[in-house]
């Protein structure tokens, strides 16, 4: 119960930040150089055509008016109309969020689990060859440009070895997957569509692997450092000196204490992964949120840019909130 109240309070604290985000995004988008109307109308349009188009998208209104419309729309769930495609931004976004979240969540979850297991393993062997090798490998992974790693993996696993499907699309269209959430693996599981599940998994392997390799190092470093700190702490030494069994020590005295600092970092890594998807989706033609937002940015599609940036910030803020709550659950010293 106290946790729920804590979460509610943190949510309230996030409100001013989100308001700030909305204002910053609005201003940022207006001062972007380039004219969206010119880019869709082409060079031959007359001034009258342009004025008419501006009126259609509300761009002839004074700025404060545009801002109010925009904020009002946000609260009623109307994110405007894409200048490029003419379709509703909300409906376009709906089909884009699922695939990207699937990618990011899978990558972050796998990386966190991997980091926990390997970090504790590494700390218990601190200073030995295995520990050093693992740390250097993690650093190499962390130093790889994800867009290049993706390309190299495609080169090896597709072009040379032919182990994975071609890097375009997320699922074989022949499998007739019914769309529910947009996250193909999840949809396939929900509809019990075996072939689609296999196909979606096959398409996910390389992009998820790319992201895991790139993001695991900081998580691993943190778990290892915390675990080492716990192992060297008086508290752990005292428990060991009282003859508690390895199992009790690992479960009761090492793991939880070593994971206390992980949630905040995992949230940060989650944000990094969201940034990475823009690049990874581009490489794997994923047709997800990142690619959609990037196109909006390149074509100065105001409504799309605004909506995508606000949604990313909202998502990121929520993730930090979740991390805070998890931290509070893990660490009794956090006052809630």
């Amino acid at each position: 119960m106290r946790i729920a109240r804590f979460a509610a309070r943190r949510l309230l604290q996030a409100v001013p930040v989100l308001l700030g985000v909305i204002v910053v995004t609005f201003v940022l988008v207006r001062v972007l150089p380039g004219d969206p109307i010119r880019t869709i109308l082409g060079p031959n349009a007359t001034e009258a055509d342009a004025a008419a188009a501006r009126a259609r998208y509300g761009l002839d209104q004074p700025l404060w008016r545009q801002f109010l419309d925009y904020v009002g729309g946000l609260f009623s769930g109307d994110l405007g109309t894409s200048i490029q495609s003419g379709a509703s931004v909300a409906s376009e976004m709906a089909v884009r969020v699922g695939p990207t979240m699937e990618l990011v969540v899978l990558a972050v979850v796998i990386a966190t689990l991997l980091a926990t297991v390997l970090g504790i393993w590494s700390a218990r062997r601190a200073g030995r060859a295995g520990d050093h090798t693992l740390r250097v490998l993690a650093l190499v992974g962390n130093s790889l440009p994800e867009f290049w790693l993706g390309l190299v993996l495609i080169l090896l696993a597709y072009s040379v070895l032919g182990w994975v499907p071609a890097p375009s699309g997320r699922v074989d269209p022949d499998t007739d997957l019914t769309l529910i959430t947009g996250a193909d693996l999840l949809d396939a599981a929900l509809t019990g569509n075996g072939p689609a599940f296999a196909s979606a998994a096959g398409h996910l392997v390389l992009p998820v692997l790319t992201m895991v390799v790139v993001i695991v190092a900081p998580l691993l470093r943190s778990v290892r450092a915390s675990a080492l700190e716990v192992l060297g702490s008086e508290a752990y030494q005292a428990a060991a000196a009282h003859g508690l069994s390895e199992r009790t020590l690992l479960r009761g005295y090492l793991t939880r204490a070593a994971l206390v600092r992980l949630p905040a970092l995992a949230a940060l890594v989650f944000g990094f992964a969201i940034g990475s998807t823009v690049l990874v989706e581009y490489v794997f033609s994923w047709q997800g949120f990142g690619q959609w937002a990037l196109r909006g940015l390149l074509y100065r599609d105001y409504p799309v840019v605004q909506a995508s940036v606000v949604v990313i910030a909202l998502c990121y803020t929520l993730i930090f909130l979740i991390a805070d709550v998890v931290h509070a659950v893990l660490d009794p010293r956090v006052r809630i």
Partner: peptide, 15 residues
């Protein structure tokens, strides 16, 4: 069995 100096530090903070 040892009673450690600085008991606060010698008690595991997360249990």
């Amino acid at each position: 069995a040892i009673c450690f100096q600085n008991p606060r530090g010698a008690l595991s903070p997360t249990r």
